[in-house]
């Protein structure tokens, strides 16, 4: 089945008769991209599942207010990003301390995770990414994995393109150093 374009999807959503159908199409079109974006931030599947459900319910509630001048997928990414950060902050407060700052702790968690299937290099790359500040992780993930343009990342994070280029550059340098040092 060919994917419906965002404009037609939004038009169908605005029609009460086809609203649920249109939303179902939207979920099927974007669920994987949004899920992996969230999963890279929160790491575990159970957490990612909770966050993605919240994201999609927020999308359902707010899609009627979406302005067509913006790109739908960057708007979706923005909601997913905010929900992931909110989730991580709540988790930190719950445990009264920063979590997963220790790379060995993350490696151990990933090794024990039944939903992780990566080799040593991948494990090390994940640990290197996770050692970055949250904002740099987001920039790196969106550029490296999702291959987004700086303009679109800027739309998601509300940061200037120049600042994003600098952030990505720093993130990549740190990861390269991390990989070389071992």
């Amino acid at each position: 089945m060919s994917e419906i374009d965002d404009k037609s999807l939004l038009a169908k959503f605005r029609n009460p008769d086809t609203q649920h159908y249109a939303f179902n199409l939207l979920v099927r079109k974007y669920q994987e991209k949004l899920y992996w974006h969230v999963r890279r931030m929160v790491i575990e599947h159970e957490d990612a599942n909770d966050v993605i459900q919240n994201v999609l319910i927020k999308v359902w509630k707010n899609l009627g207010n979406f302005r067509e001048g913006s790109k739908l997928y960057t708007w979706l990414y923005r909601i997913a990003t905010n929900e992931s950060l909110t989730f991580l902050n709540k988790k930190k407060k719950k445990f009264f301390a920063p979590i997963d700052d220790d790379e060995s702790d993350l490696s151990n968690r990933l090794k024990a995770d039944p939903f992780f299937d990566g080799d040593e290099v991948t494990l090390k790359l994940k640990a290197a990414i996770h050692a970055l500040p949250e904002k740099q992780q987001l920039v790196f993930n969106m550029r490296y994995y999702d291959e987004m343009t700086y303009e679109d990342i800027s739309d998601v994070l509300g940061t200037s393109v120049g600042a994003l280029k600098a952030s990505y550059h720093h993130a990549v340098k740190k990861i390269e150093k991390f990989l070389k040092d071992d």
Partner: peptide, 18 residues
């Protein structure tokens, strides 16, 4: 240009879902 070693690593999705 920035990170030649990182550029050589194959991009793959190590996470799985049920």
């Amino acid at each position: 240009q920035i990170a030649p070693q990182l550029a050589k690593i194959e991009k793959k999705q190590p996470y799985q879902v049920p």
